[in-house]
Design a protein around this nucleic acid. Sequence first.
DNA 1: ACAATATGTGGCTATTTTGCCAAATATGAT
DNA 2: ATCATATTTGGCAAAATAGCCACATATTGT
Lengths: 106, 106
Amino acid sequence: MTGAERSLLVAKAKALKALGHPTRLFMVEELSKGECCVCSLVERIDADFSTVSKHLSVLKEAGLVEIEKRGQKVFYRLRATCVTQFIGCIETAIRENAERYAKLAR
Amino acid sequence: MTGAERSLLVAKAKALKALGHPTRLFMVEELSKGECCVCSLVERIDADFSTVSKHLSVLKEAGLVEIEKRGQKVFYRLRATCVTQFIGCIETAIRENAERYAKLAR
DNA sequence: ACAATATGTGGCTATTTTGCCAAATATGAT
DNA sequence: ATCATATTTGGCAAAATAGCCACATATTGT
């Protein structure tokens, strides 16, 4: 593997890892419906403001979202829209295995 | 969010998290070319046999791969083929942001 | 039964991740 | 200037993860 290939692999893994947390995945699903500010996400998530903010920065670092400041608010937007598609695909794969479902959800 | 919705969210996050490690992502990319045994993967990855085995079990637990024992070998097969598609999509998203690329790959 | 090959597991340490709190920063309103 | 609102950051302790070693298990061939 070349250095560039390795770098790309790591970057892809970083993006996937960012999606690999229930709270962050939920955020991305919410963002897929349209941009929203941090405060709006905090309302929909049972976690500290600072926790939400840190999760968002993980998504940003991974290149999955971008921000725009308007007034005192910061709006987050989903960058890779294909992410939405994929989540659906993963969902299908999981549902296919209905009998393993309960176990996987643990 | 209902309990079932929450369970599905957690299961999806688990699958994404499983993909979110360079070694496991590489394994999945290799498996997308066709099934292969653990020993074959060990040859392509610079890590201990036990490490490779554990990574594979993470992928299995997440429902992404399935196994078949033949003789003394255990063959792993990619279950969610859409995963391949998605990796391409993530790759595109990453490449789009060429100027951020070097930073993301860190 | 014994040896060889292939794989999985237990245990351990180092590292990373989470999530909360408190404090810092930024922007707009009074 | 002061205050309120929105967001980020630093710090910390608990939990999860990664990777190696040694050992256990399974299968095949002799």
